[in-house]
Amino acid sequence: MLRDLPTPLGAGVYNVYTGVQSDDPSGASLPTAAQLGLEPPRFCASCGRRMMVQVRPDGWWAKCARHGLADSTDLDTQR
């Protein structure tokens, strides 16, 4: 499933909510808001850079300077 997500969200080794490498024991933990689906991703999964995030009434978009844009509406087809 992660391979089907847009590059900034699913094709990497970094936690999209904390920016820590997934190999690191602290990288596996998720904030409570993210577990509830209330928090948009803040870090790029590919490079760990902080992304520019805009929250809208109907969702969010997140943009990595290197890996492009991901939109929550793109993820609706993944559900």
Rank of each mutant, 00 (worst) to 15 (best):
P41G: 00
Y17K: 03
G12I: 02
S72F: 08
Q54W: 04
L9W: 01
M1Y: 11
L75K: 04
L9D: 02
C44A: 06
R66I: 10
R50E: 12
P40S: 12
A33Y: 04
R50W: 00
L9S: 03
D24P: 05
G12C: 05
C64N: 05
A65Q: 10
L2Q: 14
R49A: 15
D74E: 14
M52S: 15
R50A: 11
A28Q: 13
S22C: 11
Y14W: 12
S22D: 12
Q54L: 08
P41W: 00
D76R: 15
N15F: 01
A33C: 08
L9A: 06
H67A: 09
A65R: 13
A62D: 00
V16E: 00
C44E: 01
A28K: 15
C64A: 07
P31K: 08
P8Q: 05
Q21R: 15
Q21Y: 09
G19Q: 07
A62W: 00
L30K: 10
P40V: 08
V20Q: 04
Y14P: 02
N15D: 04
P6R: 08
A33V: 03
M1Q: 10
P41L: 06
P6Y: 09
Y14H: 14
R42C: 05
S29A: 15
R42M: 13
W60K: 09
L36Q: 14
A45N: 14
P31M: 10
T73A: 14
V53R: 03
D58W: 08
L2P: 02
K63H: 12
S22L: 15
Q78V: 11
T32G: 01
R56M: 15
M1V: 11
K63C: 07
G27T: 08
M1E: 12
A45G: 06
A33L: 15
D24M: 09
G68D: 01
C64D: 03
Q35C: 13
F43N: 00
D24V: 12
R42K: 15
L2K: 11
E39T: 04
M52Y: 13
G12E: 00
R50Y: 03
P57I: 05
D71R: 11
E39G: 01
S72D: 10
R42Q: 13
G10E: 03
V16A: 00
Q54T: 11
R66Q: 10
D4V: 07
F43D: 00
G12P: 02
A62S: 05
S22V: 13
R50H: 08
D76C: 10
Q78N: 08
G10F: 04
